[in-house]
Write a protein that binds this DNA or RNA. Structure first.
Lengths: 203, 203, 203, 203
DNA sequence: AATGAATGAGCCTTCATTCAT
DNA sequence: AATGAATGAAGGCTCATTCAT
């Protein structure tokens, strides 16, 4: 791993935990074991570091959804696959997802938020396509498509992101069963699939 | 409105927009039209101001859920009522909700987060009761209760909170139809009710 | 003296000695016996402190030249009076003059330099008037008016400003006879008057 | 031109424009098209680069004055020649002269300033000799010799150095007639010669 | 000889807070 | 009760310099 990447990893961790304003370049440098000046040296500024982080992780998020839409014919099957891909993705990058989510909470529009919005939007549109297609094929009921997407994103985020709350609402012992566990991930997939099936087909 | 409350209102607005670290007491004092020293004077510190804000708004959120559980007999009916109350509550205090949500994203445990967790938890438990009761009465299917709660919270949050994203995903023109509109609120209620009915009863 | 003025006085001293970039707000605050934050508090920024300093001293420089032109009839007499006023002024504010002079050496145009130029220009124009009038009245020879002004300014600056060099070129013991001495000031006046008389009238 | 000299040329330009503290080694390296580390590599430090620059240019300034004093017999003639040499010298190295001038404004004594003083002093002494000789031969009037030297230096500096101000005081269009023009140079020589003749001989 | 990476010190500014009134 | 002045700490960033290659 290059030093640049190393900084980005640490940045992701700290920003996920404390937010952008809550993370000082000094804290960042300390945790990354580098000099403060290196942040400016590599990225130009703290803001640009953030942009670089978004760019760095955006790649992971951009792929694969399109593929699904082409290969699988049955809409319900495709929704299942999407859920699987989506859950995997978010669980694997839960820290970055936390950052994205936080960004969404800000009403201020920055260079970054535009970028982030576009990433999320692309995913959302892919889901939208399936839903519309399923509806046209009379396989899905007529549902509020946009809110269905919001439900998918919101539910998954809620499960993945709010450790503290979730662990208590959900009755999970955060020490033994966490977001990092395979079982937890599967439980999430199963729940979402069932939910969507009922919601979309009523069966 | 007392000066104290006036400060709290402004604090809510700014913190909802820019986060806790992103909001300086100077900006706050400027917007509230008071002296900087007043924040320390009234609340002791910025942190304590935040705690006071949570306390100030928590009252709104704490009431009414219990009532519903006592008065209404039919579990499905009760779920509907809860959704209505919950949606109304969050739409009415969407700024504060945004703050709560952001707090949940933080893994740092503060005095505040404990407080906030308790508020949210109480609500969640009320919902849990209905779900369990409905299941015992064989009116509801057997579902993953904890994740169902997460779904409820997550979906509503997603709809209410991410103006920018939602407005684009959801296909809402943020100029004409926003979180402040009655129609938008009703649409949300309808969606959640249908979703839960399908999810819980399959019908 | 207010604290604001106190800061300005110290700023003048340090900037005269080390230049603007060469003077750190920390050094300034230390010498003025105040906190670093006070510079921003009072002036907004280091740059604005400089502007305030120019404004603060500009007043001293702006007055009095016009008066001379109205009251005295004889051009040569008026030139003498101007020299006296000019020498007094610069000797009294030699530190600020040093700053002005340094600013002139910069080719970068700032808000300040425009301001400074205007002050100097006004003085120069007043001198120009006398020279032209004297020439029209056939009292002065035909001379290069603009360069004559440059000579006046340049000579006086050289004498007043370059302590180290002057003290050695001029053969003055900087310990005993300095810019602060009355005799040195009178010597300067005498020199300039004689120089100008010869230059302008040839007698 | 060696790389070393190339750096020195760029350094002269930037330091003349922005002063020593106002010129960063980074800006310098960028403009010279070399690596930042090169400055330390070639010169040891920024200070030493400055010293090297003084040394580099000092050579130009040191020569020729002595020669004049030996070859020409008539003191007035010699003064004229000196003015010519001096004007030529300063106009040819006006950037470096700007640096010297700025240094004179500083009261801080550095290794450099000592060096610079010596250069200027040597020139001044050469002038002094002629003035004294002319006075002894009863060709020159009795004048304040030291101030006369200051006048010469100051006037020329003022004309050469303060582009912005001069161009406005002097009524020169900086676009068409500048320090680089032959005519401007000749005008300066003529002015100084006439001035000195009147001042020294009264004729 | 030459360079990109890295450093620690210092830059100016803003922070939340406290003090005197 | 309320405020302008003042503070020390921390903010992000740039500095001249050094290191390893």
């Amino acid at each position: 791993m290059t030093k640049r990447e190393q900084i980005l990893e640490v940045a992701e961790e700290l920003i996920a935990e404390n937010g952008f304003s809550g993370t000082s370049v000094r804290a960042l440098a300390a945790k990354a074991g580098i000099n403060v000046a290196m942040i400016s040296y590599y990225f130009g500024s703290k803001e640009k570091l953030f942009e670089a982080l978004v760019e760095y992780r955006a790649g992971f998020l951009r792929e694969k959804f399109q593929v699904l839409n082409r290969d699988v014919v049955d809409p319900m099957e495709r929704v299942d696959r999407m859920i699987e891909a989506y859950v995997d993705r978010i669980f694997s990058h839960h820290r970055f997802h936390r950052i994205l989510h936080r960004q969404m909470l800000s009403t201020k529009t920055t260079v970054n938020s535009e970028n982030i919005m576009n990433i999320l939007l692309k995913n959302a549109e892919e889901v939208k396509k399936v839903l519309i297609e399923g509806e046209q094929k009379k396989i899905f009921r007529k549902v509020d498509i946009e809110f269905t997407i919001a439900m998918l994103i919101g539910t998954l985020s809620q499960i993945a992101v709010s450790c503290m709350l979730s662990s208590r609402i959900i009755g999970v012992n955060p020490q033994t069963e966490t977001i990092h566990d395979e079982s937890y991930r599967e439980r999430t997939k199963l729940f979402l699939k069932n939910l969507m099936r009922k919601h979309l087909t009523g069966k």
